[in-house]
Simulated scan of single mutants.
Amino acid sequence: MIYRRKTYKIKPEKLDDFNHFFHTYLYPNQIQHGARLIGRWVNENKDEILAIWEYSSMEQYHQIEQQIKNSERFKRAEEKRKELGEIYIESHQDFLTTTAPDPSTYHPPKHTMSVSGYITNTEGDVLLVRNFHRSDTMEMPGGQVEVDETIEEAIHREIMEETGVEIQLIGITGIYQNVTSGVTCVVFRGEYVSGEQRPAENETSEVIFTKLNHENIHRFITREQFRSRALDAMDANYLPYEAFKARPYELISRFEGKKDN
């Protein structure tokens, strides 16, 4: 394995613009062509962003870069960059390998935290999305938890970014660990509050509210790992959730979820 460490220097006031650009263009283009995002970090001053990508070999990295440069999304990204002006001041990258002379200088995270949400409207319809890089199935909206973000904040942000919908949370219905990829997903159940559903450019190709039950779920959610999460959320038993800071202790939020009648 090799790891590409990409560092971006930005103006702090451009952080939101850069985050949107990253999630809309940089991230989906890499993932679609076979790279894996190990993690992304923002420093305290919000003027430097570090992203680490994993590739099976340097050859795979060069193949992916060539595929990206030939893609329509790359062309749109370049146009968007010009439209927004300089999103970042400068960027540079280096490579780390598992056989480096001093491997102790870098250890990739063993786990990534993600979130997804089983969201219903007043008619009981469930919010589902189809992602560009997983077009064979629909799934509950969600994504990766960012640094310095609670999982509660992450689920609100991800659902708004992917679907344009604002929600309120009811509770946590399950925790799921993909041992192969090192991703742990926390699934929430929630309710629609406001917003007009819409796809996210270059991320979700379809966003719908639909009737979902044990009989028809196979028609919509074709991947077994996503289907089991939705089924658990459908017949929810809620888990308590608490976010806090330590030294000194400060409770940020806590809820235990509603009990369905």
Rank of each mutant, 00 (worst) to 15 (best):
Y3K: 07
K11G: 04
E13I: 11
D16F: 14
F21P: 01
F22Y: 14
H23K: 09
Y25Q: 01
Y25W: 09
G34H: 10
A35E: 00
G39P: 02
G39H: 11
R40T: 06
Y55F: 15
H62I: 12
I64F: 12
E65Q: 13
Q67D: 13
K69A: 10
R73A: 08
A77N: 04
A77V: 02
K80Q: 11
R81V: 08
E83N: 12
G85P: 02
I87G: 01
S91Q: 14
S91W: 09
H92G: 12
T97D: 12
T98H: 12
T99E: 14
M113I: 15
V115G: 00
V115Q: 03
V115E: 01
G117I: 00
T120D: 03
T122K: 13
E123H: 13
V129E: 08
F132Q: 06
R134K: 14
R134I: 00
D136F: 06
V145C: 08
V145A: 05
D148S: 09
E152K: 05
E152T: 02
I155A: 03
R157M: 07
E158C: 07
E158S: 04
I159K: 00
E161M: 06
E162D: 06
L169I: 14
T173Y: 01
Y176T: 04
T180V: 14
S181H: 14
V186F: 00
F188V: 05
R189P: 02
E196C: 14
Q197S: 13
R198M: 14
E203N: 12
I208S: 04
I208M: 14
F209H: 09
T210Y: 03
N213S: 13
N216H: 12
I221L: 11
Q225K: 10
S228F: 06
S228Y: 00
L231E: 01
D232E: 15
N237S: 07
Y238H: 15
R247N: 09
R247F: 06
P248T: 08
Y249M: 03
S253N: 12
S253W: 09
F255L: 06
E256C: 05
K259I: 04
